[in-house]
């Protein structure tokens, strides 16, 4: 009787281990797509970039303020659409929520030209090595990360923000 029980335990253990391994593998393979990218609620990775005026911006310096971290490109149509809203909000929420617009590695001329054309005053930095973009796992443009004053990601918006209200709502969310 004792031996039989022992055998049952051993079998249960072996099957349990095997089942665990199989389930783990299937699970990780199925969630492969979303793995490695940032998720809401995580701490926003720190980075440092130099803007068009030569000023360094380090994300951790913005602690205590909300951050609207926007990745964009000059060729991207929805980026063009949301820029005026961003400019307006930057004025409205000055001192509370900071905008940091990260261009994904185009030339200084293109970015400056774009900024002039749209009359943008918020800091724009070019991520020449695409390191920040890779850290944040940005794929389609534009992608916006709303970061709370304590540095966690509050929301990730993939795609353009068409309406001004949408942008305002986002700013409201992360304002201190």
């Amino acid at each position: 009787m004792d031996k039989k029980k022992k055998r049952l335990y051993i079998r249960t253990a072996i099957l349990g281990v095997l089942a665990g391994l199989v389930i783990y593998t299937l699970y990780t393979n199925l969630t492969k797509e979303s793995r490695g990218t940032l998720e809401v609620g995580e701490k926003a990775p720190d980075f440092v970039l130099t803007d068009m005026n030569g000023k360094q911006h380090r994300l951790s310096d913005y602690e205590g303020k909300g951050v609207f971290l926007n990745f964009w490109g000059t060729w991207c149509e929805p980026c063009k659409k949301e820029m005026p809203h961003m400019e307006k909000m930057a004025q409205e929420y000055a001192g509370e929520v900071e905008i940091l617009a990260v261009n994904v590695g185009e030339s200084n001329f293109q970015v400056q030209n774009f900024a002039d054309q749209y009359g943008l005053t918020f800091p724009i930095a070019i991520d020449k090595s695409k390191e920040v973009m890779n850290t944040y796992g940005v794929n389609p443009l534009p992608t916006t990360f709303m970061i709370t004053p304590d540095g966690t990601i509050d929301q990730i918006v993939i795609g353009g923000l068409i309406a001004e209200d949408q942008v305002r709502a986002l700013f409201e969310q992360v304002k201190p």
């Binding site: 490109g73 000059t74 060729w75 149509e77 001329f109 030209n113």
Partner: peptide, 22 residues
Amino acid sequence: LLGYYPDFDGFTEEGEPISKSP
């Protein structure tokens, strides 16, 4: 140089040149 369009793809309705990609 007033504008540079690396992957030119026509104009918008407002006459603005479009670039398809960087």
